[in-house]
Design a protein around this nucleic acid. Sequence first.
DNA 1: TAAGTATGTTACAGTTTTGTTAAAAATTAA
DNA 2: TTAATTTTTAACAAAACTGTAACATACTTA
Lengths: 226, 226
Amino acid sequence: MATKIFIIEDEPSIIKLVQHNLEKEGFIVSSSLNGNEGLKELKKFQPHLLLLDWMLPDLSGIDICKSIRRESNLKNLPIIMLTAKGESEDKIKGLNSGADDYITKPFSFNEVLARINALLRRSEPNTVADNLEYEDLKLDRIEKRVYRGEKHIDLGPTEFRLLEFFLVNPKRVYTRDQILENVWPNNINVESRTIDVHIRRLRQAINIGGKKELIRTVRSSGYSLI
Amino acid sequence: MATKIFIIEDEPSIIKLVQHNLEKEGFIVSSSLNGNEGLKELKKFQPHLLLLDWMLPDLSGIDICKSIRRESNLKNLPIIMLTAKGESEDKIKGLNSGADDYITKPFSFNEVLARINALLRRSEPNTVADNLEYEDLKLDRIEKRVYRGEKHIDLGPTEFRLLEFFLVNPKRVYTRDQILENVWPNNINVESRTIDVHIRRLRQAINIGGKKELIRTVRSSGYSLI
DNA sequence: TAAGTATGTTACAGTTTTGTTAAAAATTAA
DNA sequence: TTAATTTTTAACAAAACTGTAACATACTTA
């Protein structure tokens, strides 16, 4: 899924510059020229990251930031503050109000891009890389395909998500609860044993032609990708 | 557990300033004055965050950054670059090498603190390896694996918890009651002799190939990890 | 030294956890 | 709609782990 970015900034020239370039980079971008309206649209748009100007005609960036951090479903939204204020005091105020990063004007687009990527990499590993690899296993998120070496592997949707999840942190052991939470759609209730069945199917699919087993069972803990 | 921060920076005055103030904030801080040594100590110290200088006498901060991102158990270590280079180009290079944030000198301590907190807030708890080591014994809590030297050791769940418990305070002697209380699930009742059997199993597992005995019996008291 | 106490070792039965299969239920595609 | 695919559950099999008892060995002390 493409990454969505929302911009709240009152200077049209900046919006134009940033929005255009971000779209060229493959992001889906939406923006607003003022605070109150921006806050509303933001909730509809559900972005993966917010670029937020400090000085706005109505609400201040700080207020927006605080307001966002109070909303339970936006609590973790990565926020980059965008502002002319370069004083150290201001940076601290900005960061403490809940922003994750802070860029002072004037800035180059490349700096914005680098910080966006750094922040996205941190906040949600799966929004960045298009494909994941481990040993001779390759998963392409765009094509939704999996390969073991040269061989193409057909996976059902759940097995695909399961493998995708494991590939983000290979070697790490996950409990069944963690797997459920991350691989299954929210608020769904399935038996934890259901996972075992999907693990089995995934194993069967990726262990082709006598190749090495790639999923490790850790008794009383869970599973890991080797 | 307190948050551990590691600093690699060649200017003693900066180390002193930052380290002292961070400790006042309740962090556990360790530091190194150069790259190669720092990288080694870092792996032992297992910090939750790294403050990394760009310009170092031997390795550059960029190289250290890249090297860290290649280590599977340090992949998610939050890194803040600390440097005199303020040019936009450099920032991009720094962030793209895998750093999560970037502070230019001169900085105020409060700005460093604000950025540290912003980054820690963002980073997923538990992604940083809380590994335990003693002599050539290594226990990885994330991967749930144990190594003696290079050799991988397979342990059952109880033996794993037992070793984990001993590794927190090596050399300390624990009574069977203390072991029961800390290693066994609450409200379970097992004979104290059961511990002896698990100790034996653990011993057998970790004393591979004529290596030195690591568990000491203290008659009429209990056991300790040497 | 011998008796008494503490620990080492082993085997095994019972328990828990995981693997595997098949069929019912749900979802998606035609 | 029906057909095809996918997901979930349940049931049983297999494997791994646990606790205990029983005996062996080592240490302590009278």
